[in-house]
Amino acid sequence: MAIQNELTATLPITDPMLPRLTRVLVRRREGPETLTLELEAGAAAPAFLPGQFNMLYAFGIGEVAISMSGDPAVADRLVHTIRAVGETSTALTRLEAGDHVGVRGPFGAGWPMEAAYGCDVIVVAGGLGLAPLRPALYRILAERERYGKVVLLYGTRSPTDILYRHELERWRRRLDVQIEVTVDYANGPWHGHVGSVTTLIRRTDFDPLHGIAMVCGPETMMRVTALALKEAGLKEDAIYLSMERNMKCAIGFCGHCQFGPHFICKDGPVLRYDRLGDLLRLKEI
């Protein structure tokens, strides 16, 4: 019996699980366990939105979701910053320039770039959470006049863990963006802040009534950050978090990434805080 769904009847059969094959162009070390791969985008690669992610496949090992971390205006390459934490991510970090990698994507809902027009933008990154925020920063800086005050508050473990250091230094020289970096501890020559990223929020001036926050980092960090932003006067619907869960398919079929009613892969990864708030307080959701 025919399917009770007119939507699919006209669609051609394509397989969203089938990756495109591409090659590593550049491999760059970022930190002790972290490196950035630049992949050939190829003609088939669709444009991506800041905050989206790709599924990267390492031969014989598996697939893993990795955020887009490059400039959305640069169409010829896909930039991914990867930390070797599991089998697949470790295999990916071992790839050399010229090696093959499978790519599916981009997937998911990105940062509210248009909703933030005319607003002060508070970007709060924790650790590797800077990677999915970098495309948003590129975009904001490319159309700087569309946004109000722009602040990046970046917390990480120690000065040696700072991602994209040269870029941050270059941006810091601009007069139209405020960049504050804080570390949990410093044991070398460090003249930046030491302390949690929440202390930076309390020291930052912005217009809470016309402000929007984009937050990405470990969940614990995002929870306290969202609270600090609320205390600073931001409304819950002006705070956006990029969530992470186990993902096998990225297209809403495998069920792994569910977070309450949300599929992180297709409803997220960027989700508005007012839609998450209660769930974030519960354990093991």
Binding site: I3, N5, T8, L11, I13, F253
Partner: peptide
């Protein structure tokens, strides 16, 4: 089956494996 149709065929992505099996099925 209608519920799984919604899951695999009713959103922005469709599962071609499910679709091939489902479309031809005589019930």
């Amino acid at each position: 089956i209608a519920i799984q149709d919604r899951v695999f065929l009713g959103d922005s992505f469709t599962d071609p494996h499910y679709r091939r099996r489902r479309e031809g099925a005589f019930i």
